[in-house]
């Protein structure tokens, strides 16, 4: 029972981290029309940044705000000097330029930090476990990650769903030309969306660093699973991405934790294999029957 609760919390925490990455991916795709393959690299940059700042200052508490600020700056610079010139280009050009960014970012990481694995210490204030039941306690830092992600998710969804700027962002994702016709400067929207989306991915990397350690190409897996979230949530839908991320986080974590229990017999092996790729099976089913996503409204 306590094992299950632990997996449930792990799944929740993983899903919420996924949301931070997938929400930026889906926003940037929805508003700018660009599939940013380098979005996973931004997560990697966030983790390495957290490692470097923590090493220099001795605490992750400095690294997290630095990550948010650096993410906003990196996103704004990328939009202004690079992505702006690719909105009207073909998808192939866009994919190639974002793929090139992955290679550039990984090479830079290799030059600056090298190719070793590093661990990032949990902040001393959170380096303990909270007892939940008699025989089970859960790491305080993981609760902190859950809380931080929930705060960021609430802020993001409020911004998108409840403010005037958010309405313009949704409008731009739906009918970009009409936003121009109404006299609204879409370039400001593009810059803001790219900067915020980037900052979310970088922040996710910083939050995840003490949990996963820091290693080369660590963004690749996150990118792929984030695409699954975006597809299931509905392209361009932030609230859809939220529910999809939680769903994927839980299914993936529980599937991997309990699927192996079936292994042994022939049928059991198949169940175990299906459990470990459950999220991809779910994605295929969604693509077949609800191509707009489980939570997407647009056809």
């Amino acid at each position: 029972m306590s094992g299950f609760l632990s997996q449930l919390l792990n799944g929740l925490q993983y899903g919420l981290l996924l949301f931070l990455i997938a929400s930026g991916l889906t926003l940037i795709f929805g508003v700018l029309g660009i599939i940013n393959l380098a979005h996973g690299s931004l997560f990697m940059i966030g983790a390495y940044l957290a490692f470097l700042v923590t090493k220099a200052t001795g605490s992750l508490w400095f690294a997290l705000p630095v990550g948010i600020g650096a993410g906003l700056v990196i996103g704004a610079v990328l939009e202004r000097v690079l992505f702006r010139y690719f909105y009207d280009r073909e998808h192939l050009d866009q994919v190639l330029v974002t793929f090139a960014l992955i290679l550039i970012f990984e090479e830079m990481r290799s030059l600056v930090v090298g190719n070793d694995f590093y661990s990032v210490p949990v902040p001393a204030a959170l380096d303990f476990s909270i007892p939940i039941t008699a025989g089970f306690s859960y790491a305080a830092y993981r609760f902190f990650v859950i809380g931080a992600c929930l705060v960021l998710a609430a802020a993001l969804i409020t911004w998108i769903e409840r403010t005037n700027m958010g309405a313009v962002i949704r409008a731009a994702a739906e009918k970009p030309e009409m936003v121009d016709i109404l006299g609204l400067d879409a370039r400001r929207v593009h810059l803001t969306v790219f900067a915020v989306g980037t900052a979310l991915a970088v922040t996710a990397g910083g939050l995840a660093a003490p949990l996963t350690s820091v290693y080369p190409n660590m963004g690749d897996g996150m990118l792929i699973i984030s695409f699954v979230v975006v597809v299931i949530g509905g392209l361009g839908s932030v609230s859809g991405a939220f529910f999809a991320a939680l769903l994927i986080g839980l299914i993936d974590t529980l599937g991997k934790a309990y699927g192996q229990a079936f292994a042994g017999s022939g049928l059991g092996n198949i169940i175990a294999a299906c459990a470990s790729m459950a999220v991809y099976i779910l994605m295929v089913i969604v693509l077949l029957f609800r191509p707009a996503g489980l939570f997407g409204r647009r056809a």
Binding site: A171, A173, M178
Partner: peptide, 9 residues
């Protein structure tokens, strides 16, 4: 023509 209403707003 077609009005350009934002369906999701």
């Amino acid at each position: 023509e077609g009005r350009g209403i934002f369906a999701s707003l």
